[in-house]
Design a protein around this nucleic acid. Structure first.
Lengths: 119, 119
DNA sequence: CTGGATCCTGGGCGATACTG
DNA sequence: CAGTATCGCCCAGGATCCAG
């Protein structure tokens, strides 16, 4: 089913950037253009596989621009598009909220665990 | 591996609210307290299974408070906690960005498809 | 250096049926 | 009314190997 031509925007967007890696990549590219291996080292626990896939999706969705230089060895640079840069603001709001409230969330989880173990 | 006591905040948070349903539930509860079946009707394409699971996780993480009334038939109300309400602001920023730029993203996807079909 | 192809596993999620 | 139990599918994501 689901033949809608206009899927719910927030769900559609979250399906893409809500994965494990997209936000980290966008953050890495927030300040500067980076090459593939630079990104790989910057994030470092991402597999090259997923880095490649996620970059391709971000490119398809217009967040990131990929530039291939015809050199040997090949060089590829990734940089944010206008759309990608416009996303930094709401993303930063989210990141800052996470930083501020992370401890509180973990505390809440611990309490839930402790209560559960009162069986 | 990954025995860290302090996981990356943004990843930890995204792992929870980056799923298919959490944001929709939080949005539904943004304005008013709701009962289980009200939520079920509000979102309407969520299974009761996932509504139950997601609510429990949101409760565990401290976004939502669950209140059971000892009545017959039973009544359960869900409402945002202080933490949950504090999350509305960055969430709204994200939702508004999605609304504003959704068309552009879909356009970018279409272009990518068209170029790919030039094979 | 920058990827693609292939194989595999965990878990998110839905469907359905059952319960206090 | 407000859930839980069970089953099974699908696919994000890792590991590994191959290629331009």
């Amino acid at each position: 089913m689901e033949m809608q031509d206009q899927p719910c925007p927030i769900r559609d967007v979250l399906d893409r950037i809500g994965d494990q890696w997209s936000l980290l990549i966008l953050q890495a590219l927030a300040q500067r253009t980076l090459r593939f291996n630079q990104l790989s080292r910057e994030i470092d626990d991402i597999s090259r596989q997923m880095l490649s896939r996620t970059l391709k999706r971000l490119e398809t969705d217009g967040f990131v621009r990929r530039t291939l230089f015809a050199e040997v060895p090949p060089r590829v640079e990734y940089t944010l598009t206008e759309l990608g840069r416009s996303f930094l603001s709401p993303m930063q709001a989210l990141v800052e909220w996470a930083d501020t409230h992370h401890a509180q969330i973990r505390q809440s989880r611990r309490q839930a665990r402790d209560i559960a173990s009162d069986s």
